[in-house]
């Protein structure tokens, strides 16, 4: 019994030390992040370099706003056999205010989750009788950025109970599953070491509130699923497809992790 106790005591010490390392890593910036921090959750904005934050803060400098402009043009443009534009039904884009915060969400007729990209495409096929836009096309990114941007600053609030619960659980499992030759789970970087330097980058909490983001490394805007794919490949794991069930579940879990953080689309990140 005495041995058992000391065993747990040692394990506890190991945990405490691990936590200590993570805490040290973020201790350098103990500042008031305002809306960018909710309880212990911090937007990627707070881990970004000051010049990157400045780029995001100024709409005229934020290169992601070019995508919002693409979306704005498409909003008023009729497309498809029904001859409708988004504006035909939704009127002004301000009607989209608050819409983005609850995506992805469970949709009964699909018996599945649907993210905002897919919701936009469903509107196109069902109501406009237009073709779907491809994932990562400038049209779908542009419209997603534009619609999310209408909720700028509003707190993220996805539903994870009821019909969404099994999907949430699946997303959580994905998040904690080691994968790839490097054998790492999402949580190992984004829960255990946010704030720590990983080579040239500072690890963040992997929050989704700014997506689609303008990423300096991409020299363009990309979706959250693109980022998932990049992360998966970095640990030398085979990625899932854009809009796959796996990534939808992960998207729900990630958005829940960032609950209360403000929509920042289009955020600017490293």
């Amino acid at each position: 019994m005495g041995i058992n106790l000391s065993r747990y005591a040692l394990f506890g010490l190991a945990l405490a030390l691990t936590a200590g390392v993570a805490a040290n890593a973020v201790a350098d910036e103990k500042k008031n992040w305002g809306a960018y921090q909710v309880e212990d959750r911090r937007s990627g904005y707070t881990y970004a370099a000051p010049e990157t934050r400045a780029m995001q803060d100024d709409n005229f400098q934020n290169p992601g706003m070019l995508w919002a402009e693409i979306g704005e043009e498409l909003w008023n443009k009729a497309d498809g056999e029904a001859g409708k534009s988004c504006a035909s039904c939704h009127k002004g884009p301000e009607s989209m205010k608050g819409v983005a915060v609850s995506y992805p969400k469970y949709v009964a007729e699909k018996k599945n989750l649907e993210n905002l990209e897919q919701r936009i495409n469903r509107c196109r096929t069902d109501n406009m009788k237009a073709k779907e836009w491809k994932y990562e096309s400038k049209e779908l990114l542009g419209m997603t950025v534009f619609v999310r941007h209408q909720s700028l600053g509003m707190p993220m609030n996805v539903k994870v109970d009821g019909e969404a619960a099994p999907f949430f659980k699946k997303g959580e499992e994905f998040y904690n599953q080691r994968r790839g030759q490097l054998d790492m789970a999402c949580k190992h970087c984004h829960e255990d070491f946010p704030g720590a330097q990983l080579r040239a980058n500072v690890l963040s909490e992997g929050q989704g509130n700014g997506f689609p983001v303008y990423r300096l490394k991409w020299n363009g805007v990309g979706s959250l699923h693109r980022r998932f794919r990049g992360c998966n490949k970095q640990v030398r794991s085979s990625a899932y497809g854009y809009g796959s069930d796996e990534y939808l579940a992960l998207e729900l879990y990630v958005m829940w992790r960032g609950r209360g953080l403000p929509v920042e689309t289009p955020a600017v990140r490293n």
Partner: peptide, 18 residues
């Protein structure tokens, strides 16, 4: 978080080339 540098089995969804 540290990878096991000499392990090739029991890994999940490793990219084909690895």
């Amino acid at each position: 978080i540290m990878p096991s540098f000499y392990k090739s089995e029991g890994l999940h969804r490793v990219l084909k080339k690895f």
